[in-house]
Write a protein that binds this DNA or RNA. Structure first.
Lengths: 185, 185
DNA sequence: GTCTATATGCGGATAGAC
DNA sequence: GTCTATCCGCATATAGAC
């Protein structure tokens, strides 16, 4: 057969994920994805209508990975311990897969979290904070926590601090947010 | 005269700043800057050795603007009030000039704040936090605050939250960080 | 000091052969 | 379903005329 089926959406997405992780968002081009699959760029259009669709799939995959990771590392029953496990896992992931993490977080996506994946991730975070503050729908608390975690991930990666690193700042922020939530409880 | 001097570094920088504000970082090209000055792109090389140099100037200008803005809006003597004024001014600037703010914050710049402008900005923030916690060199506190402010700016801009907005989350985070710092004092 | 012309490279996307 | 060929646009940067 001259042209057996060599592609499918999952394989294309996997290649795209690898490229983002290795080369950052700027490296994600249809040509690069195709090359990794030993295929030519136009073939990809049989599976994704355009580049934006592929980018959306990458973001959704990143959200899935984040949720899985947080779930896996959050095992404690005690709300505070569980919260700290979630926060730690969040930052660990941002360090381990920075390009993928920032690709998903920085992408100018109107309604980024109207996607099912984004909603699930948000709900998980909300549950951890809610268990802490005693308010199961503690939107404000979850926003504050998410802002801090993401901001910290950005600063940490920016290299703005010496080798000592901003680690002390992490404990400071988490303690502040936790003790306040406990006081609300 | 066939070719009187039409350019200077300040004018080029101003044009670059306008383009970033209007079109975002992706819109910043030498062609676009030159066009705004009614000049051709190669002429810019008489003033900036390459694009990276121009980008560095834009980042430094953004840091100067941030510091001026924070200074202008921070007038109170009371440390907590002063801190809240600084935080409010920070987020107001991020909302008013988002493209310029994020251009400076996101740019992968090793030693972004070894620049004089970055250092001055950091020192101002450190002083506001130090006045609050009673520790004039409260690096951890300043890191926590900066992380929260920047993270909040990102979330706010991402449109991840409904029209109600993440405002409540802002108060939550600031109150947590403030009351903790006061307790340390 | 500014210009034209050009080298060189990247990217997305489409038409049409096989 | 994949390919080749191509269109089109964008960019940084340089050489050399004026």
């Amino acid at each position: 057969m001259p042209h057996p089926k060599r592609l499918d959406p999952a394989a294309i997405l996997d290649a795209a994920l690898e490229i983002v992780e290795e080369q950052g968002s700027a490296g994600l081009s249809l040509r690069a994805v195709a090359a990794r699959l030993d295929v030519k760029a136009p073939s990809l259009y049989n599976y994704f209508p355009d580049k934006a669709a592929l980018e959306g799939a990458v973001i959704a995959a990143s959200h899935r990975l984040m949720l899985e990771t947080l779930r896996r590392h959050t095992r404690a029953d005690d709300p505070e311990t569980a919260f700290r496990q979630t926060a730690e896992a969040y930052l660990k992931l941002a360090r381990k897969r920075p390009a993928l993490y920032f690709f998903a977080m920085n992408h100018q996506t109107p309604g980024a979290d109207s996607s099912p994946e984004g909603k699930l991730l948000w709900n998980f975070l909300l549950a951890r904070v809610g268990a802490l503050s005693g308010n199961p729908d503690d939107t404000d608390g979850a926003v504050a926590v998410w802002a801090f975690l993401h901001g910290f991930a950005v600063l940490e990666r920016s290299g703005r601090f010496g080798k000592s690193g901003p680690k002390g700042g992490l404990a400071r922020g988490l303690d502040a947010l936790i003790s306040q939530s406990l006081r609300l409880n």
